[in-house]
Design a binder for these strands. Structure first.
Length: 581
RNA sequence: CGGAGUGUGGCGCAGCUUGGUAGCGCACCUGUUUUGGGUACAGGGGGUCGUAGGUUCGAAUCCUAUCACUCCGACCA
């Protein structure tokens, strides 16, 4: 492919809209790759669309190689499918709902479990059709509370989603592993530094899940990695082994009785600590949660941590084995006979399950809410003045002990570009998807689902590969691999540049030829901004000696090489090989 | 949903306090100039000042409502 830049719609900008905060968003706007149409909604212009397609092509090749089949489901989905799975009511305001002229409800698909499950239910009857893996590359819509960072967190976005169907858990595990391996290859080919990490299954549900995180400072996710055993997980569920060595070691052995102290308006741990003149860590943080709210098996949980730490709701949910959990409202707290703001485990009403972070085991001389207005208890000893289960409730931090090997955890920031879920039979059960097994018995299928944010992958590549001047695309996803610049308006220069471009095109490269009537400075700046991996500058000065300048995007000006006209192809081939991942 | 803020040509902004019929830079078009890192000069096109109502002789400017967008937080595939 050879593109004349004079005909390319790629309006580059010197100035950027002030709301572009991260590199990928800023550079995509400046390089003329995307334009915003509404909050979190973008038009992909030619350069941006080429990148998206290059990523999508890699994804398709690897999905096909892993035995998946491409389909395309509708973007607009009738509500009855979502009512059948129960998610019409569960999903919340992120689901964009529409009404058609007849008054029927629809939604714009944020994910397609319902549609694909129905498809399989109606069209697959025998175990002989399994394993089955269907995928699509499609525009999705999630009405995000706060879209930001351009393609990184849009409301409308392009996603590859795949769904696997198997007869039993063992086969489904194989499908999961196949996708896991395909994902490794995909992100490798995209030239990314990434890490698969263990993750929470969230609203989608399921038993096992990994996120593929691209390492970048601007990432919205925090992950922890064990320096010793390589355990990597999202902080939201990363396991911590032993309690941190805590400052209770030097505590004074106080009296065996706790006493009530007046604390006035102070309710938060920090306020209470300030008022009493002690460290925040000496105050016990007590939070009340409702588990499985609205269900028959709902129950109340009081979660405890040191005052300078926070309860991780995902860990708490798992610790008490609940499907869902949320903070209790003030009204609910009152109904239980407690006082909002001064909740505490001492003299706590019956029927509340008290769960403490494991680091609290044996902690003494703490301050906790007295369940009475303006009062706290002091000199409270854990396990003496109240009883609690000890669980891992606190979000992992750098320096914590690894839950697998006891090594040291460190924190990193990541961009989630892919997610694989082992779903089990949640959807096949809700939507009654069965096939006949070899014995002629109906069996519920075991499912997996697998997503890749295509636009987000492109954005992540920029976060990882850019400098002050612009983007520096990884070879396989660059809009064009070689940028040929005709320096000057010389007819001869232009002709020679075009000849070189055509030659390289025949060699199979994607070429962008800057044939515009711009000054050299403009062309160099734009080339740096657009970020093609290889650049060939053709100017009258060099042509006099039969030479052109060849450089990679990552070389400095001084490292650029003068290359004889007849050696260009060989040189480009050689450099290309060093640039491929 | 809570807090803060902003809407003026494609982009970045000034003008608003103290009402008088809209301006600058970038980009775009024309010409001259320049030609290896965003050249210089001259000329030009483009804006119902988010929208609706109100006050006023007169509103970008003051008032009310409304919409949109952004930031911080809460929330979250």
């Amino acid at each position: 492919m050879l593109q004349f830049q004079s005909k390319l719609l790629a309006p580059t900008l010197k100035e950027v809209p002030s709301d572009a905060e991260v590199a990928s968003h800023r550079l995509m706007l400046r390089a003329g790759m995307i334009r915003k149409v509404a909050a979190g909604i973008y038009t992909y212009m030619p350069l941006g669309w080429r990148v998206i397609n290059k990523v999508a092509t890699i994804v398709r090749e690897e999905m096909d190689r892993a035995g998946a089949q491409e389909i395309l489901m509708p973007a607009v989905i009738p509500s009855h499918l979502w009512k059948e799975s129960g998610r019409w009511d569960e999903y919340g305001p992120e689901l964009l709902r529409l009404v058609d002229r007849k008054g029927s409800d629809f939604c714009v698909g944020p994910t397609h479990e319902e549609v694909v499950t129905t498809l399989v239910r109606d069209n697959v009857q025998s175990y002989k059709s399994l394993p089955l893996n269907l995928y699509q590359v499609q525009t999705k819509f999630r009405d995000e509370v706060r879209p930001r960072f351009g393609l990184m967190r849009g409301r409308e976005f392009i996603m590859k989603d795949a769904y696997s169907f198997d007869l039993d858990e063992e086969a489904a595990t194989k499908s999961y592993e196949k996708m896991f391996a395909a994902y490794q290859r995909i992100f490798q080919r995209c030239g990314l530094d990434f890490k698969p990490v263990e993750a929470d299954t969230g609203a989608i549900g399921g038993k096992r899940s990994h996120e593929f995180q691209v390492m970048a400072e601007t990432g919205e996710d925090t992950i922890v990695v064990c320096d010793d055993c390589g355990y990597a997980a999202n902080v939201e569920l990363a396991e911590i082994a032993a309690p941190r060595v805590d400052d209770n070691a030097s505590q004074v052995m106080g009296s065996r009785a706790y006493e009530e102290v007046y604390t006035g308006e102070a309710t938060s741990c920090i306020e209470v600590a300030d008022r009493l003149g002690v460290a925040t860590r000496r105050v016990l943080k007590s939070m009340l949660f409702i588990a499985n709210a609205g269900e028959d098996d709902s129950f109340v949980v009081m979660a405890l941590t040191f005052g300078d730490e926070d309860v991780n709701e995902i860990k708490l949910r798992k610790a008490v084995d609940a499907r869902a959990i949320r903070l209790a409202s003030d009204d609910e707290v009152l109904k239980l006979g407690l006082t909002p703001g001064v909740i505490g485990p001492v003299l706590c009403p019956e029927g509340i399950r008290v769960v403490a972070d494991q680091s609290l085991q044996g902690a003494r001389d703490l301050i906790c809410g007295a369940n009475r207005k303006e009062a706290h208890f002091a000199h409270v000893h854990v396990s003496e003045h109240f009883v609690a289960e000890f669980k891992d409730l606190r979000a992992a931090r750098a320096g914590d002990a690894c839950g697998r090997c006891g090594g040291t955890l460190s924190e990193k920031r990541g961009i989630e570009v892919g997610h694989v879920f082992f779903l089990g039979n949640k959807y096949s059960k809700a939507m009654n998807v069965t096939v006949l097994d070899p014995n002629g018995k109906a069996k519920e299928l075991v499912m997996g689902c697998y997503g890749i944010g295509v636009g987000r992958t492109a954005a992540a590549a920029i976060e990882q590969h850019h400098d002050d001047f612009g983007i520096s695309w990884p070879w396989n996803i660059a809009p064009y691999q070689v940028h040929v610049l005709a320096i000057g308006k010389d007819e001869e220069v232009l002709n020679e540049a075009q000849r070189i471009a055509e030659t390289l095109e025949k060699e199979g490269y994607d070429i962008l030829l800057d044939d515009r009537g711009e000054r050299p400075g403009v062309k160099f700046k734009d080339a740096d901004l657009i970020g093609c991996p290889l650049r060939i500058s053709v100017g009258s000065r060099g042509l006099k000696e039969g030479k052109v300048e060849v450089k990679t995007r990552r070389m400095t000006k001084d490292e650029a090489m003068d290359v004889n006209l007849d050696a260009i192809v060989a040189n480009v081939n050689k450099l290309a090989n060093t640039l491929r991942p």
